[in-house]
Design a binder for these strands. Sequence first.
DNA 1: GTCAAGAATCTGTGATGGCAGATGCCGGAG
DNA 2: CTCCGGCATCTGCCATCACAGATTCTTGAC
Lengths: 229, 229
Amino acid sequence: MPSTRPAERAAPAREEPAPLHSGVHAELSRRFITGQVTPGSSLSTRGLAEEMGVSQTPVREALSRLAAEGAVQIRSKRKIIVPTMTPERFRELLRCRELLEPEAAMRALPYIDAARLRRLKRVDDSIGSAIANGDLQGYMQGNFDFHFLIYDALPRGILNRLIEILWLQFGPYMRVVYGRVGTANLVDQHEVAINAIGAGDADALGRAILADIRDGMDLIGKSALCMLA
Amino acid sequence: MPSTRPAERAAPAREEPAPLHSGVHAELSRRFITGQVTPGSSLSTRGLAEEMGVSQTPVREALSRLAAEGAVQIRSKRKIIVPTMTPERFRELLRCRELLEPEAAMRALPYIDAARLRRLKRVDDSIGSAIANGDLQGYMQGNFDFHFLIYDALPRGILNRLIEILWLQFGPYMRVVYGRVGTANLVDQHEVAINAIGAGDADALGRAILADIRDGMDLIGKSALCMLA
DNA sequence: GTCAAGAATCTGTGATGGCAGATGCCGGAG
DNA sequence: CTCCGGCATCTGCCATCACAGATTCTTGAC
């Protein structure tokens, strides 16, 4: 099972029950990263509470965290909404990714061992089959797992946390873009990255990650034609 | 009857009371950024609630946000603490700042008008007098104001939000470092930055911000001698 | 039919109370 | 003196209720 838990890497060995708000936040994060929420839609504390079988209190706490992470905006008009998608915001998101992710990958490279590299290849395969099956959600989950399998080789990083925040905001947008232009024309930069890792070539790895992000940048250009709201 | 407009709320704009948790978060953020909390210390929801005259609920919500921002760690052992200071963490914080802040400054440069430049000079003066008076808290507040007066010229940025998160984690550490090595040997890169802004020289501005951060890096090196925990 | 007033509902927000685990203090046994 | 058992206290956590603004639906007037 791929790690779907973004932040909270707790609950290691002890049989200590994880706080409910932590579970709610993990579930919501998964939905955001896999694009199961659409920009502009609204969430409600009561609705989510009932859906997840908990009270409002842990849901509110989780939503507070998501608000701090920029995944949701809390309007004073008694509305909690997913930020609407604008080309400017999308572009800035990608530029921040360009700034952080190649650096994170290059730094993490020395810590990627053979086992992790095998897992990377396995995840990349699952991404391929997800694309073949038109499984958008599976593709996005795999894409997330792939990138963070690299970055998290260097553990406990502040840098990785920042990148995670970007992905939380990024997921809902990507969903929309993929829904418009499809995933067919995806060039697989992941294979290039895997080869760079195998060769221990940090610069090549950084370039591959950068190219992967730039591909997303191109997608928005292509989808900008039909994008108006 | 010429249907009276249901509301002519154009002019006065009825003031909407800000949520309590928002105020609590703002106050706590200020304390973190100005170094009024010490690494390793613990906070309690009830204590802060009583101190600020509110219930636990808004305090918990504010602390959730601060946890998402990395300013506090929420231990499952019924403790919520300010992260302890380690040289590695301090170094990574500074490296993330190096990555983001020069870029943010260079991007914001075209949006800095004369009025903002004047405010920058005024803040820089206040920093000088704070140093002269040994007012550490005033110095840190001024330093924060100075940097974000630059970055926020380009409004509503995701990048700025990431930088703010870094500063929230940075404040408690800086307090400790300054307390150890003092603020006497601070070279004022701010003046260099102001001149670069006046000249419209983006590269020079980026270099000045970078040098300002590197100075902090040097400080930790100097204080590493007496740093053990 | 149109449209506005009002009621029912839904929203985030905040306070309260209580649960269970962790901490600390204090006194008694050795 | 040391040690340790138990109780008082403090902790985060969560459910519940109440409140006020916003939204939606209904209803009644014209």
